[in-house]
Nucleic acid binder design. Structure first.
Lengths: 201, 201, 201, 201
DNA sequence: GTCTAACCGAGACGGTACGTCCTGTCTTAGT
DNA sequence: ACTAAGACAGGACGTACCGTCTCGGTTAGAC
C-alpha cells in the first residue's frame, strides 16, 4: 500500500521496517488459509505477525486493505506461459486462476464486496487485483491476434473480462468452486477458433 | 421466508401480523437506497419498520436473509418481454437488469459476498436471486432457439450466466455501474447471430 | 448510578437486571483488592462479572464512574457509633475511615484525581464519596454540640472536612497510609475539649 | 531530574543542550494551562517544545515526572514574605498558594494521584512539591514561635500540613477552587492567636 | 584536524486500554 | 402466541497514548 518511500516528504525519522510488511502479508495469508475470512481479525493478524496493531493501521487504512494486499501478493498468483496456441494459453492461465481463486475464495469475496461498496477501496482493488488478472488474459489475447488466431478487431477488453467474471459467477450459481471441467467449457466456448463454423459461441 | 402457516402444530395464540413482513421489506429497501448496505443495521430496520427486533429474528435467521428477501421482492425485478428477436429480447432484459443492479448495487454485493461464504445462505441466494435472473435469460435463449436464431446445441446454461457475470464484473473493473452502452456491447458480442461470419465472438 | 427506574420514560422493554450492578460492583472491588487500580481494566471487570462490556457502558459513562460506585458501596464504609463523647466518636470514626482508605487507597486516589479534573464527575464524587464521609463527621460534631462539648458557633463545615483532608495529605506527605497513631494526633489536636477553655479553635 | 553531569563516567560526546529543558518545561506549562492535564500528551509536549520524544525520555523517566518538574519550576511558586505577624504571614502565603494551586489545578491532581500510587514517584513528589510548600508554612510557624505568637510546643509538622490539605479537600468538596474567603476562614480558625487563651488547638 | 561518543529531531515500533458499535438472544409488559 | 421496547453477552473495530528503538545528522572534547 504505502511503502514509506513516498516522494515529497523528507526522509526523516526511523524508516519503516520492510520485514513488517512481509510478516503481515504472510500472517494474513496463513490465517486466511487456516480459518477463513470470517475468523480473520486485525488483532489476530497483529499477534501472528508479532506486530503492534497501530503499525498495521499506520500502513493500511482498514482491515480489507490488508487482506487485499496479502491476496495480491500471494505466491499463487496466476501466470500466463506461452504455450503456442490460444487454447493452450487460456487453459493454462485459467487453471492457475481457478487455483488462486479456490485458495483465497472467501478473501476474494470479501474484497470484491468491499470494492463494490467503497469507491476509494475500489481503486486499490482494481490496481492490485482485477487489472493484473485481466492483464494476463490480455497478453494471451494479443499473442493470439499476433498469431492470427483472432482478428485484429476483437474486443480484447470485453473478452479478457469474461473468464474471471464467469469463474466468480459460477462460484455463486453452482455453490462451489469451478473445477477444470468448467475451465474446459470456457475454453471451448470462447477461446477456440472455429474457422468453418457460423454459429454463435 | 417462514410464513407462519407451517402445518402440523396447532395454530394457537396471536397470529402473525401480515403487514409486518411488508413493513420490514419496505424499510430495508428504503434504508438500502438511502445509506447503502454498510450503514444498514438490524436495529435501524426494526426502528424504521416500527417493529421489534425479536420479530425480525422470528421470521429471518439473520440480517442478510432479510436483505435477500427485500431485494428479491423489489418492484424493479428484471422482466423479459418477447420483442420478436434475440437481440431485442436480450437488450430489453439486460436494460432492466442493469437498472435493478444499479438500484441495489451494494446490497447485491453484500448478498453475493455472503453467498460465497455461507453455504446455506448460498442456496437461498440461488433460489431467490440468481436463478430467477438466469431463468429470464434462459427463456429468451429458448425462444431464440425456437425461432432458429440459435442452433439447438447451444450451451444455454453457460450463455445465460454471461450477462449477469459481466455486469457484476464490469462494476468491479470499471468502478461504476455499467450503462446502456455496455449492454449494447454485450448484445453485440454474444446475442447477435452472424450467419456469414467465421470469427470468434 | 442509573438504576433504570428513572421516572419520566415509560417502563417498556426488558428491565435492567439488578444482579448485574451487584456483580459489577463486586468484581470491581475484588480486582481492586487483588491487583490495584493500575491493573484495573474495563474488560477485566466485565469478564470477572460475567457481563458484556456494552452493559457496563450502558450504565456508567466511563471507567472511573464504575470505580466510584464500587468504592461507594464497599462494605467497609465508615460508620459513626455513638460512644458518648466527642473524643470517642471521633476516634472510632477515624479508625474506620483509615481502614476504608487503606483498603481502597489507589482507587480513591484515582477517583479524587478524576474529580479534580472532570467537573461533571466531581458531582458524582461529592454525592457518592465526599459527602457521606463528611456527613458522618458532622453527626459526631452535632452530637458534641448537643452534649455541650462544643460551642454552638463551631464551624462544623470546616471542622468536619479536616480529618479526611489530613488523612489524604498524610498519605502524600508521609508516603504511606496513616495509622492509628496519626488518628490519635488528629483527635488530640482537633477533637479534645479543653476543660479550662471556652471553645475549640 | 538528570542533569547529565553524573559523576564517574567520562564526559565525552555532545553535551546536553541546556535550552532543551527550559523549552520542555515551558511547553508543558503552556499545554497544561491551555488544555488541562487530560489532554496532555508526551508527543504534544515534544512537538510544542520542538524536541524529539527520545530527548524527553533521556531526561525524565516518564510523563508525570516531566509534569512534576514543570509545575515545581512554575514562576507562581508560593512564597512567604515576613509581614510581622502570623495572621499576615499565613494570609499572604495562603493567597499565593491558592493562586498556584488554581493555576495548576489538574496537573497537581494528576501528580498527587501518581504520588499515591507509585512509591518511587512519591519521593520525587515530596521533594519537589509537598516539602517546599510545607517548608514555607514551617518558616512562618517558626517565626510565630520566635515572636511568641505560638507556644514552643506547637505541633508544627501537623499544623503546617493543614492549609494545603484543606485547600486540596475544599477543591474536591466544593467542586471549585477555594477563594480568598476560604483563606480567611482557615486563617481565622488556625492561625489567629487568641489573646485570652494559652494555646492554639 | 580528524575521530567518536553522546546528543538531537523525527517518527516507526510493540503493546495495551479505551469507548463504540453491532449481532443475535432474552425478558419484560401489553394485545 | 404474538408484538414493541430494549437489556443482555460477546466480540471486533479503529483510536490514542506510552515508552522504546532506529534512522540520518550535529556538536563538542579527545586524540
Amino acid at each position: 500500500m504505502d511503502d514509506g518511500t513516498g516522494g515529497s516528504r523528507a526522509r526523516v525519522g526511523r524508516p519503516r521496517d520492510p520485514r513488517l510488511g512481509e510478516a503481515v502479508v504472510a500472517a494474513t495469508l496463513e490465517l486466511l488459509a487456516e480459518d477463513g475470512y470470517a475468523q480473520l481479525t486485525v488483532e489476530r493478524i497483529a499477534a501472528r505477525a508479532g506486530v503492534g496493531k497501530a503499525s498495521l493501521y499506520r500502513r493500511w487504512p482498514d482491515k480489507v486493505s490488508i487482506v487485499l494486499e496479502a491476496v495480491s501478493r500471494s505466491p499463487e498468483r496466476p501466470s500466463a506461459p506461452d504455450t503456442g496456441s490460444l487454447r493452450g494459453d487460456a487453459r493454462a492461465y485459467l487453471r492457475t486462476l481457478v487455483r488462486y481463486r479456490t485458495l483465497h475464495a472467501d478473501a476474494i469475496a470479501a474484497i470484491s464486496s468491499q470494492a463494490l461498496c467503497d469507491e476509494r477501496f475500489g481503486d486499490a482493488f482494481r490496481v492490485g487485483m482485477a487489472e493484473p488478472i485481466m492483464a494476463g488474459m490480455r497478453v494471451i489475447l494479443e499473442r493470439a491476434i499476433a498469431r492470427g488466431e483472432l482478428t485484429p478487431g476483437t474486443d480484447i477488453a470485453l473478452l479478457s473480462s469474461v473468464p474471471p467474471a464467469l469463474l466468480q459467477a459460477q462460484r455463486l450459481v453452482a455453490g462451489r468452486h469451478p473445477d477444470e471441467a468448467f475451465v474446459e467449457r470456457i475454453v471451448d466456448q470462447f477461446f477456440s477458433p472455429h474457422p468453418d463454423e457460423s454459429e454463435l459461441p
